[in-house]
Design a protein around this nucleic acid. Structure first.
Lengths: 212, 212
DNA sequence: GTCTATAGCTAGATAGAC
DNA sequence: GTCTATCTAGCTATAGAC
């Protein structure tokens, strides 16, 4: 017979296992590609048998879709809020604000979210849900965010009158390419120092456009 | 006994088959990912048995590496030569030149090269050769090319004095993101009209920076 | 929830006939 | 060069014991 406490412990263990499966899957999918990862590989890293995974997830696609759900849930936390931006605007120069946003991600968001972003980026050509999420959360929402920021800066008189939408989109597209290079650098496939230096130079370039 | 003519015909057929395998592999790898494609699938589309493919290629990796070799061989043809640029500079505005370069690719280069570019882009996180090619042929060489173009324009007095390198790199990074969206649009995962319109707007934005 | 065992299938690759 | 036949290995997923 199973006591009530044993039942609770099992459930706790289950939640931990589910989280570990998700974390490890995100990491493997991001680095080896969704099709390049086997259930066996995930289970081995989690420390359980492959068959035990099917207690938590219906199949491999179910893991992927759960990761996508997590991303949608957590992505708003990946950037400073608009209220935070208002505070920054009072005490910081444009360059500082953009740098702050850039490094906010690294500080406030788990590696899992970063990995899911890479999965979305890699699978967008063949997975319609990934394609939809790419446009919504990687292209449009960040562009909207930067547009609002540039408009705020313009209203404060920190920068000159400028096409905020265009500048926001251009900055976001450059950032996208650089984020991928940052990911490559993390895996020894690019020089981290150069990538970070270039990110800073990009911020200076765009802030230069806004001021001149 | 095999006559000499029969031998020649077999060899011709062989070359055609090899080319078909490469074309179809490039297409499938680009759209479904390298790991998402099976040898059986390629062979079926080529119209031969999988086992016959192993007469032409040692294995699946061999096909991929041959595609990479082809890319290196053909990539110089994907942009107008520096001599062509000099001719353009005499009769065209900056916008027109950039648009010409943009559409040159579509007109002068086979879909296979475009597909290989996508494969490099997708595999760069796990395939060191793809990573190396990405930096060399997708990031650095095009940036060098645009830098030379902007310097030429500057020397002609068509545009103001400007940081040509920085502008070239920024334009190239935006182009990279947009090229991928163009590829998505071709597969019904994005709106082609919007993507092309945005490419034009990007050219106008950068040319605006160079003139103002 | 986790395990062992295994079914059922598909992948990559080779051997040998024509 | 292409075919049929086949091997081995690996993958996804399920059944049933603990």
């Amino acid at each position: 017979m199973e006591t009530e406490t044993q039942g609770i412990q099992k459930r706790k263990k289950g939640i931990e296992t589910v989280n570990r499966i998700l974390e490890i899957s995100a990491d493997l999918f991001a680095h080896k590609g969704y099709d390049g990862v086997t259930g066996h590989e995930i289970a081995e890293m989690v420390g359980i048998r492959e068959s035990s995974m099917y207690n938590h997830f219906k199949n491999k696609t179910d893991i992927l879709n759960t990761l996508f759900d997590i991303f949608i849930d957590k992505v708003p936390e990946s950037r400073p809020s608009d209220a935070d931006l208002d505070k920054m605007l009072m005490i910081m120069q444009p360059e500082e604000i953009f740098k702050n946003i850039l490094f906010y991600f690294g500080g406030h968001v788990s590696g899992t979210i970063e990995n899911i972003a890479m999965i979305i980026n890699n699978e967008k050509y063949r997975n319609p849900r990934a394609a939809e999420m790419y446009y919504r959360y990687v292209v449009n929402e960040p562009s909207d965010y930067y547009e609002r920021l540039i408009q705020k800066m313009s209203r404060c008189g920190m920068i000159r009158q400028i096409d905020a939408r265009m500048l926001a989109e251009q900055y976001n597209y450059v950032s996208l390419s650089l984020t991928k290079e940052y990911f490559m650098a993390k895996n020894g496939l690019a020089d981290m120092h150069s990538v970070v230096k270039y990110m800073i130079r990009t911020i200076e370039f765009f802030c230069g456009l806004m001021k001149e």
